[in-house]
């Protein structure tokens, strides 16, 4: 039937394809987010270290990964390493690239937060006789994290949206499945509108969860 506005029936009939793509998108998102959140913390501590052999590589890492496109990094990990004989699966390469670059961004968010938020409390902890590392773990990081919920949340949303890029190294996630479906059926409008809604639902869920968490931790402040 032509001359329509939006063919819901078409979407409904092809839902399994969307579900399968959504599953892969979720997988890539969760792995990349976990990698970025943890990796970023490690790099942030490197950036704040007074030891040159920790500070210098952490800084180089952040500068390099923040200032080159994540798509190129992905190509490098997938095609580039393959040339050198290390063959990564498309999903592994995609997750590594997304986690890698976003770890660099998150490291800078953490660092700014830790350096600005916890300085006074850090001094108090040191004055009580805590060693630096324990003061960080017991006092500074917990405070910084609760105050960094919003900027961290923004970065997680970026990760979810950027998972669409892994379609270009042939991961069959939401965008890739959508592209294939659109090419087969010419229902381009329906397909991409639906995909957009799926992404919106994912990112909103993350934002809402974090806002809820933020409200809870701020109540006790």
């Amino acid at each position: 039937m032509g001359g329509y506005f939006f063919d819901f029936g078409f979407i409904y009939r092809n839902l399994p394809i969307f579900w399968s793509g959504l599953g892969v998108t979720l997988e890539v998102s969760v792995l990349a987010m976990a990698g970025a959140v943890v990796g970023g913390l490690v790099i942030a501590f490197g950036r704040m270290s007074r030891r040159v052999w920790l500070f210098a590589p952490a800084t180089a890492y952040v500068e390099f990964l923040r200032n080159t496109p994540v798509l190129i990094q992905m190509f490098g990990l997938y095609f580039g390493l393959a040339v050198l004989g290390f063959r990564l699966s498309p999903i592994t390469a995609g997750v590594l690239a997304l986690a890698g670059q976003n770890a660099a961004y998150l490291a800078e968010i953490y660092r700014a937060g830790i350096e600005s938020v916890g300085r006074r409390q850090l001094e108090a902890a040191l004055a009580l006789g805590m060693r630096r590392w324990r003061a960080m773990r017991l006092v500074v990081v917990p405070i910084a994290v609760t105050r960094l919920v919003a900027p961290i949340g923004n970065q997680l949303v970026v990760i979810i949206k950027d998972t669409s890029l892994v379609s270009s190294i042939s991961v069959y996630e939401l965008t890739m499945e959508g592209k294939r479906l659109a090419e087969r059926s010419a229902a381009t409008y329906e397909v991409f509108a639906t995909i957009a809604v799926f992404y919106l639902v994912l990112t909103s869920a993350v934002s809402l969860a974090l806002r809820f968490y933020e409200r809870r931790v701020q109540l006790i402040f």
Binding site: R120, E123, A124, L128, G129, M130, R131, I143, V217
Partner: peptide, 22 residues
């Protein structure tokens, strides 16, 4: 470790309290 030990025997109170808000 030694510095931390010395500090643990010296109490300090700051102008801005510096309590642990969490």
């Amino acid at each position: 470790e030694e510095i931390a030990k010395s500090r643990s025997e010296i109490g300090m109170v700051f102008q801005s309290f510096n309590l642990f808000p969490h």
